[in-house]
Design a protein around this nucleic acid. Structure first.
Lengths: 106, 106
DNA sequence: ATAACTACTTCATCAGACGTAGTACTTCTG
DNA sequence: CAGAAGTACTACGTCTGATGAAGTAGTTAT
């Protein structure tokens, strides 16, 4: 429904948002994004997992292995303080983007 | 002010918007984007000109050389019917994006 | 047992953005 | 009138993040 180029800048924001209140893992985050967006946006698996790698490398999230499982072993992610700061920053940027883009809508 | 990854999906929309009512050229469009966004977003020259090339190749705009000049010869761009349709489509997508992303803002 | 679901990984490719640099012509400024 | 600044565009190589295809591996439903 929504193309990935327009969402490209918000994948990180979405992931960080879903980690704000509890740790989570790929499959679940993927599901939540699909659900919250009412199927309007589905993040590709490869996009999601490569985002995890990137965010972890940059110190915005950390990972650990979970115990319970319904299939292959889950990797849980936890947001760091830097991650929370990044999230807040991205929220501010989003406000700006909305203002700017809206002025190009007829 | 605003990073380019978050604007990536809207460069085409902005350019098409500025061509809706009159033909224009690179330098001028660049200026207008800077102005309308109150300096919050400045599209890089290379981004702009490569967007022109792409949009023209795909039939959304056409180009011709202008006569008046204040420097090097201007290339003017005109939006096509397909371009107008694309613009309307992108506006609709933008509405969706706003709805979706807003649900990930705390 | 086997299909479907959960969960993740690897790898190669691609589009679009960007930095750097250069061309070319006009206008402003001292 | 020379040099700086502004107008206008082009070429080229690089990088990031998204993607497709395919595979691994365990669990649950039929």
């Amino acid at each position: 429904m929504i193309g990935s180029d327009v969402m490209r800048g918000y994948n990180d924001l979405m992931i960080l948002f879903l980690l704000l209140h509890e740790d989570s893992y790929g499959y679940e985050i993927s599901r939540q994004i699909r659900e919250i967006s009412h199927e309007k946006y589905v993040m590709k698996e490869t996009t999601l997992y490569s985002a995890f790698t990137r965010l972890e490398k940059l110190g915005y999230i950390t990972s650990y292995f979970g115990t319970e499982t319904n299939g292959k072993r889950r990797t849980y992610y936890r947001i760091t303080e830097e991650g929370r700061a990044l999230y807040r920053e991205k929220c501010g940027e989003w406000k700006l983007v909305k203002e700017v883009v809206d002025d190009f809508i007829e």
